[in-house]
Simulated assay, not measured.
Amino acid sequence: MKKFMLLLLFCHVASPVLHSMKYFYTASSQVPNFPEFVEVGLVDDVQTVHYDSNTQRLVPKQDWMEKVTADDAGYWDSETQRCQNDQQVFKANIDIVKKRFNQTGGVHIVQRMYGCEWDDLTGVTNGYEQHGYDGEDFLVFDLKTKTWIAPTPQAVITKHKWDRNTGQNEYLYNYYTQECIDWLKKYVGYGRSTLLRKELPSVSLLQKTPSSPVTCHASGFYPNKIMLFWRRDGEELLEDVDHGEILHNHDGTFQKSVDLDVSSVKPGDWGRYSCVFQLAGDEKDIVTKLDPKVIKTNWGKTEIKRDGDSPSGFPTGGVVGAVVGLLVLVAICIAGVIFWKKRNNGFEKANTSDGSASSDAGSAS
């Protein structure tokens, strides 16, 4: 069973026509300087809504999300009320799960992640709901059998309880196969100009020391359905390369790096290597040859300077963007990575409306 973090890491390899809507709930106890409860919604990996126990209000994170009031004038009020109810449910759920694991104090996190996907080319759809506790799987909804999977013995009590609630499970099935897809299509329509845009990155070659790997760094691209890889003599390299994660920039674009170990590459062979950036749906690749003259270093051999570059030649703009983006992800990862397991911790299920799959299973105790 894949962890939520893995879902986040691999979501970027999806088809270029694969749209997604994801919701993450995170309830925590004794986490310093972090809200006790957070809800975050994303469409095509773009954050659309946010709620936390400090503000007590669900708010749009994209201008185009305001369009939802054209169909439902009271949308933000009703959704805020739902979030406030969820907050109480998940607060109680932490106490229930702690007892299951014979725990008392300390830092603990309950998570729920759910959502759906829609391929606008083939029409194929998929849905999922998962719950976790302290970074481990707790419960997963099996869409095919309409039953719950308990990866840990402490979740078996809740699994049996929820399995008996066939009406609720039937509702979840219908939600993930129909209602969730309808909302996803609506949101994609609202944000079409943003979600379907394409932006190409700037690509730089970086190296810390003469013996360090050469990093191919692409920043400023959108969407995150991309491939970035090294090739030799026109063939993709699978060895001596290290792929980094796709990270958020502060402006909503993305960045990614891939390292090439050049320790065994002869100086005369450098010209055989190149870094290739491919954006889904764009026929033209961005190819950057491995040339010592264009590598930015911090050891005095900077050949290329750009606005925003540091004195060492390393671009600071992308790094700053990554830091800002990561701060957002701490709310989407502490409220998102954390989320993976947060999906329905076998206690009482939180409600679901537009993007939220309703869960009225009752207490897990």
Score class of each variant (00 low, 15 high):
Lys22Tyr: 11
Glu39Thr: 05
Ile334Ala: 08
Lys301Val: 09
Leu143Met: 14
Pro151Gln: 02
Val31Ile: 14
Val40Phe: 08
Ser257Gly: 05
Gln130Gly: 03
Phe10Pro: 00
Asn126Tyr: 03
Lys98Ile: 06
Leu326Ala: 09
Val38Lys: 01
Glu79Ala: 06
Glu36Cys: 02
Lys3Thr: 01
Tyr114Lys: 08
Ser15His: 14
Val328Leu: 04
Glu199Cys: 00
Thr288Trp: 08
Lys61Ser: 09
Val43His: 06
Val262Met: 11
Glu245Ser: 09
Pro60Val: 01
Trp270Asn: 11
Thr152Ser: 10
Asp182Ile: 08
Gly281Val: 11
Asn54Thr: 06
Lys186Gln: 07
Tyr222His: 03
Pro32Glu: 13
Val265Phe: 06
Cys11Thr: 13
Met5Asn: 04
Gln88Ile: 07
Trp64Val: 07
Asp309Ile: 07
Lys161Tyr: 10
Val107Tyr: 06
Met65Arg: 02
Leu195Met: 03
Ile149Pro: 02
Trp118Pro: 00
Asn344Tyr: 13
Gly281Phe: 07
Ser359Met: 14
Tyr25Lys: 10
Tyr23Lys: 03
Trp64Ala: 01
Tyr176Gly: 06
Cys216Phe: 05
Asp251Met: 02
Glu303Pro: 13
Met21Ala: 13
Thr316Leu: 15
Gly132Trp: 08
Lys349Ile: 04
Gly234Val: 05
Glu303Gly: 15
Thr316Ile: 14
Ser53Arg: 04
Tyr175Asn: 00
Thr48Asp: 06
Gly321Phe: 09
Asp71Phe: 01
Thr125Pro: 00
Leu8Cys: 15
Gly132Phe: 08
Val287Ile: 15
Val337Ile: 00
Asp233Thr: 01
Ser264Cys: 03
Thr177His: 05
Val156Met: 14
Thr48Asn: 02
Asp242Ile: 07
Val156Trp: 09
Gly252Phe: 01
Phe314Leu: 14
Asn351Glu: 10
Leu200His: 09
Gly41Asn: 01
Met113Arg: 00
Asp259Pro: 03
Ser211Ile: 13
Phe24Leu: 11
Ser78Lys: 15
Ile181Trp: 12
Gly135Trp: 04
Val43Phe: 10
Asp360Ala: 14
Tyr51His: 02
Gly308Leu: 07
Gly135Leu: 04
His217Tyr: 15
Lys3Asn: 02
Leu247Ile: 02
Ala70Tyr: 01
Asp233Ser: 05
Ala357Asp: 03
Gln168Ser: 10
Leu172Met: 12
Gly317Cys: 08
Glu245Leu: 13
Leu260Glu: 03
Arg82Cys: 11
Lys146Thr: 12
Gly325Leu: 04
His250Asn: 14
Phe90Gln: 04
Ser219His: 15
Thr122Lys: 12
Phe10Ile: 09
Lys98Trp: 05
Val17Met: 11
Glu179Arg: 10
Pro267Asn: 03
Gly336Pro: 00
Phe254Ala: 04
Asp134Ile: 02
Met1Glu: 10
Thr104Phe: 04
Leu184Trp: 10
Phe37Ile: 03
Tyr114Trp: 07
